[in-house]
């Protein structure tokens, strides 16, 4: 199909779905249509317009248009003075001028001054309406901020812009769908474990959270379910805060297998004298400076317990503490919640 016909067909498609979703479309189609509907309302003129525009000055001679129209394959040129649009000169104006043999007259004598424009921050749906209402091939685009000419928009630009955006969105969705389960399916081995190791610096309150943040982003890139990621992130963050607040630093290791995420947090002191007591919500030995910073309310370990499927804590005073938690990936409950999300 020639390009012009493609554009015409795509244009009619946009016009019809802009207004309403037809009866009898399948669910899959309906989803795509809704996406276009969303996009024509969401996207703005300046996201699709051409910024690299050819212009002429009102004092240029009509003869200058000969090369422009021929070489650039365009059918109209905006006339601009000091970045302001003052009119348009079209191929029709040029032909008329040629027939009258007045090619040495200035553009300002032959151009049209009454020009319909669009603003750069108007939604595409408005551009679609204007194209349809007035039947023009293009609109100059004016900046709402300073009133200068900033671009030019054609139906082709709108279609290309929508297709490109849909492709990007679709691609992002595809990545999102590439869940951890698939990741593991692609690995050929009898047993697979991914290990991520992090070092946590003690007493550096400003950097606290870097490990949990890094682990969280990693799990997200692997396509893990959001609910699982949130539980792991909160538990790891609380454990990381404990390392920062109470110890001189330690190590956090995450082991990911097809069935669970296991987090191991190890430090070399000072140790917890009474683990049972430390686990009680509200029990805290945190110094005042930590409380002032919004932590140390005695909820950390009980929060970790709440987020984990398995929690194991062992500690020797003067030696160190080892915390191990696991979040299961294949529990019925997790799978159900994954489908919800």
């Amino acid at each position: 199909m020639p390009v012009a016909d493609c554009i015409r067909t795509a244009w009619w498609a946009i016009l019809s779905i802009k207004d309403e979703v037809g009866v009898g479309v399948s669910v899959g189609e309906k989803k795509d249509i809704t996406k276009v509907q969303e996009l024509v309302y969401e996207m703005k003129v300046d996201q699709v317009m051409a910024r690299d525009i050819i212009t002429v000055s009102p004092d240029d001679l009509m003869s200058k248009l000969r090369e422009l129209l021929r070489d650039k394959h365009i059918s109209g040129v905006p006339v601009v003075r000091d970045k302001r649009l003052i009119g348009m000169v079209s191929i029709e104006d040029f032909i008329k001028c040629l027939a009258e043999g007045k090619m040495d007259s200035p553009v300002k004598d032959r151009m049209s001054y009454d020009v319909e424009t669009l603003y750069d921050n108007e939604p595409l749906v408005r551009a679609v309406e204007e194209f349809n209402r007035l039947g023009y091939g293009r609109f100059p685009v004016i900046s709402r901020g300073d009133g200068n000419l900033v671009g030019i928009i054609t139906k082709g630009d709108i279609i290309r812009g929508l297709l490109k955006k849909m492709e990007i969105d679709y691609h992002e969705e595809e990545i999102h769908r590439y869940r951890a389960s698939h990741f593991f399916e692609d690995i050929i081995a009898d047993k697979t474990t991914l290990i991520f190791q992090y070092k946590v610096v003690g007493k550096d309150f400003n950097r606290a959270g870097e490990t949990s943040s890094g682990l969280k982003k990693t799990l997200r890139r692997m396509g893990m379910s959001p609910k699982i990621i949130r539980r792991v992130a909160i538990a790891t963050y609380e454990a990381e805060m404990n390392l920062v607040v109470f110890t001189d630093g330690g190590e956090i290791t995450a082991q990911v297998t097809p069935s669970e995420i296991k987090i191991e947090v190890v430090d070399e002191g000072p140790g917890i004298p009474d683990i049972k007591k430390a686990m009680e919500p509200g029990f805290s030995t945190a110094p005042d400076w930590i409380r002032e910073l919004g932590f140390g309310a005695g909820m950390g370990l009980s929060n970790i317990h709440k987020c984990a499927d398995v929690m194991h804590l062992e500690s020797t005073v003067g030696k160190g503490t080892r915390l191990e938690i696991a979040v299961h990936l294949n529990d019925k409950e997790n799978r159900a919640s994954e489908e919800d999300s």
């Binding site: 309150f205 400003n206 606290a208 959270g209 949990s212 943040s213 969280k216 959001p226 949130r230 992130a233 909160i234 963050y237 805060m241 910073l293 919004g294 932590f295």
Partner: peptide, 21 residues
């Protein structure tokens, strides 16, 4: 998830907490 957190805690851990939760 998705809640609005109002807090007087003005340090990076407020953001970290927001990020994790």
């Amino acid at each position: 998830p998705g809640a609005l957190l109002l807090t007087g805690l003005n340090n990076p851990q407020a953001i970290r907490t927001g990020e994790m939760s």
